[in-house]
Simulated scan of single mutants.
Amino acid sequence: MPVEYAAFCELHRPRYLSYARVWLPDADEAADSVQEALCEVAVHWRDLLVSRNPTAEAWHILRSTVAARLRAETSAAPEPRGSGPADEDLAILHYVVGLAAPEIADVVGSDTANVAGRLRRALLHEPADW
C-alpha cells in the first residue's frame, strides 16, 4: 500500500472506530466494519485521490459500510443521504465521540465553519436516535 494510504488509515482509523462503536456496540463488529471500509478505500484509493474531496468520499464509504452492517442486524440503520455527512453524524462525532469541530471537519472532509454551523442546528433537534 502507498505511504499516503497508510497515513490516512493511521489518522482516521481511531475516529472511524469511535463512530462505528456508536452504531455497532459489539467491538468486533465495529472493528470489522471499519476494516471493511478501509479495504474499500484501498481498492478505490487512486480514484479517491483525484476526486474533488477524497476525505468526504472515504467518509461516505465508512458510513455506508456501517449502515449496511447495522441493517443486517436491525432495522435501526442510519440511511446514507448523498455523499456528505448527515447532521446526525456530526452530532455523534461531537457529542458522543467527543471531537471538536476542526477534527470533525477533518474526518468528514468538510470545513470547520460548515461543521460548527451544522452542529448548532443539530443541537436544536432531539437526539432520539443516537
Score class of each variant (00 low, 15 high):
Q35C: 04
A58E: 05
V50Q: 03
W45R: 09
E29C: 07
S33Q: 10
N53K: 04
H44G: 02
L17D: 12
P54H: 02
V43T: 13
L124Q: 11
S75T: 14
S110W: 04
D47W: 03
P78D: 09
A58T: 07
A72D: 15
G109H: 09
A76I: 03
Q35H: 11
R52F: 03
E126D: 10
A128D: 09
N114E: 14
A113G: 01
I104Y: 09
R71S: 13
R118K: 11
L90I: 11
R71A: 15
E73V: 07
R69V: 04
N114I: 10
P2L: 11
G109D: 06
A76P: 00
W45G: 10
L38E: 13
A42C: 08
R71L: 13
T65K: 03
Y5H: 14
R121W: 08
G117R: 11
R121I: 11
I104G: 06
M1L: 14
Y19I: 06
M1Y: 13
H12A: 06
I104R: 08
A30M: 02
E103H: 02
E103M: 05
C39Q: 14
R71P: 00
A116R: 15
A100F: 03
E88F: 00
P78F: 01
G117C: 05
A128Y: 03
V66W: 00
S110D: 12
E126A: 12
P85R: 03
E57Y: 00
D87I: 03
A68I: 01
A91G: 06
A72I: 12
S75R: 15
R121C: 02
A86M: 11
I61L: 13
A116K: 09
A20C: 02
V3F: 12
Y19D: 01
V96P: 00
L49P: 00
E103R: 05
S33I: 01
D47S: 08
W45D: 07
A37D: 06
T112A: 11
A68K: 05
V97P: 01
Y19K: 07
A30E: 09
P127Q: 07
H94Q: 13
E10F: 15
A128F: 05
S83K: 07
H94A: 15
L38G: 10
Y19G: 07
G117P: 04
G84M: 07
L11E: 14
L24P: 00
V115L: 02
N114G: 13
Y95M: 01
L24Y: 09
A122K: 04
S18I: 01
F8I: 07
N53A: 04
P80L: 05
V107G: 01
